[in-house]
Simulated scan of single mutants.
Amino acid sequence: MRIGELAGIVGVTTRAIRHYHHLGLLPEPERRPNGYREYGLRHAVVLARVRRLTGLGLGLAEVRDVLADDAGRDLAEVLAELDADLARQETAIREHRARLRALLDDAEHGRLSAEGPVSPELAGFFGEMARASEGRQGPESVMAAKDREFLVLLDTTASPEDRDAFLAAMRPALGTPGAVERAHEVYARLDALAGADPADPRTDAAVDEAARALADSLPDSLLTELGTEDARALADGRGTRDDGFLEAFFADLAPAQAEAVRRAMRLLALRGVDTDTDMDTDTDTDPAAEGGGSG
């Protein structure tokens, strides 16, 4: 039979058959004197096996090894690996569906946050933040909203393990007496720097307030995550090992705000290196300056 007839019997295209010839999956018959290649039952059986194995999810290279009896890959081994991979996919799908159901429930009952759909873990944390701020008067801080946007970015792009570890470290701060009030004071100071020059004296005051508030409310386990190199990176405006989260955050701030936040984080990083480090905010303590840089 001709190639078109073979393709019709097995349910593939003639182009697929030629591709299988090229990959060594299907023997290619010699041309007859009439110029045509004649296929027989053996070719149809091999082609049917190729189709069955690819239908199970095997790649063409794996199929080639299975069909080659002396190639060293046992069919049982290949199928066991495929079964394990499908089991992992099944687990992931169940987790995704559980998150989808939670998000759908939030959407149906009007519980979506202002930032839109987020993971159930972050949605729960936002709820805790809202309850901790209940009773506070006045409009919401612009910087507080940026903080939440930063968490949304982290929630979407970081690994679930990193996100959960970060939220677990932040959660105790919500229960620290006075921590929420101090946070709003810091937000107010940073909001006031929106149109200020980085050299404005209010920048130093914001640095001092932010560093002390965070040091008092965040656990030492989170502060010690930053090392000496990270401290230097923060001091000269570079990011840390956060894969660009801080760069995106700083890019959305006014110059004086970015300067204040960066310097406050640098002080916290130094505290993680040396718990006896003075929390003085003078630029003379800048590690970049000590190393001969401009800071």
Results as ranks from 00 to 15, higher is better:
L154C: 05
H19C: 03
Y39E: 00
E225R: 14
A76I: 09
G116R: 01
L226F: 15
L75P: 01
R52G: 01
E229R: 14
T281A: 11
D208A: 12
D208N: 08
S141F: 10
R262W: 10
A196T: 06
A194T: 12
R31Q: 12
A16P: 05
D216Y: 03
G8M: 04
V118I: 09
A231F: 05
R32A: 13
A130M: 06
A44P: 06
L226W: 14
A61H: 00
P172N: 10
A130F: 00
G239H: 04
A168L: 09
R88H: 08
A231T: 06
R52C: 05
L151P: 02
G292C: 08
L190M: 06
L253P: 07
R111Q: 10
A144E: 09
E121F: 11
D83W: 02
D164K: 07
D155Q: 10
I17R: 03
R42Y: 11
A196F: 06
L25T: 00
R52D: 13
M1E: 10
L47T: 01
S294M: 08
E209N: 00
V50H: 04
T91W: 00
D252L: 12
V118E: 03
G24C: 04
A132E: 03
L153R: 14
V10S: 08
T157C: 05
R97F: 02
E38V: 02
P177M: 07
A130E: 13
T228Y: 11
M143D: 09
A80R: 14
P172L: 07
A183Y: 13
R97M: 10
D284F: 09
V66W: 00
G237H: 06
S133V: 12
